[in-house]
Amino acid sequence: MKKHLLVSLTLAATGLLGGCVTSTVDEMVFNTPTLENMEDASVVILGRRHASDYETEPDFIKCVGDHVRRGNGSVEIIGELEFMNALYPWFEPRTAPLRPADIDRLLLQPPVADKLAELKTEYMIWIDGSTVQTNASGSMSCGVGPGGAGCFGFGTWGNDSDYEATIWDFTDKAEVGRVSTSTSGQSYMPAVVVPIPIIAPVKGTACDSLGDQLLQFLSSGY
Rank of each mutant, 00 (worst) to 15 (best):
T14G: 02
D212F: 15
G204L: 02
E80T: 05
I167Y: 03
T10F: 00
R70L: 10
L81G: 10
P100T: 11
Q216F: 08
G150N: 03
S220I: 12
I61P: 02
P190I: 08
A191V: 04
F170R: 05
A41I: 14
I61F: 10
A51G: 06
Y222A: 02
Q213N: 09
E27F: 03
P146T: 07
S52E: 10
D66K: 10
N85M: 12
L11C: 05
V21R: 01
D66V: 11
V25F: 00
S187H: 06
C20I: 11
A41D: 05
D114A: 08
N159H: 14
L218S: 00
C142F: 03
N72E: 15
C142E: 02
F83M: 15
D53K: 07
D40R: 07
M189S: 04
L210Y: 09
S42C: 05
V132A: 13
S182D: 12
L108W: 13
S219D: 01
F154Q: 05
L98Q: 15
R178L: 11
D104T: 14
P146D: 09
T134P: 10
P110N: 07
G155D: 07
A51D: 13
K173D: 07
G145P: 13
N135W: 04
A117M: 04
D40S: 09
Y54I: 13
W126F: 15
I61R: 01
L108Y: 13
A96N: 01
I127E: 02
G185Y: 11
W157C: 02
H50W: 06
P93A: 05
K62H: 07
L81H: 13
L107T: 04
G15N: 06
S8N: 04
D114L: 03
G145Q: 12
S8E: 06
T32N: 06
D128H: 11
Y163R: 05
D162N: 14
G211R: 01
L11M: 04
E57P: 00
D208N: 10
S139Q: 15
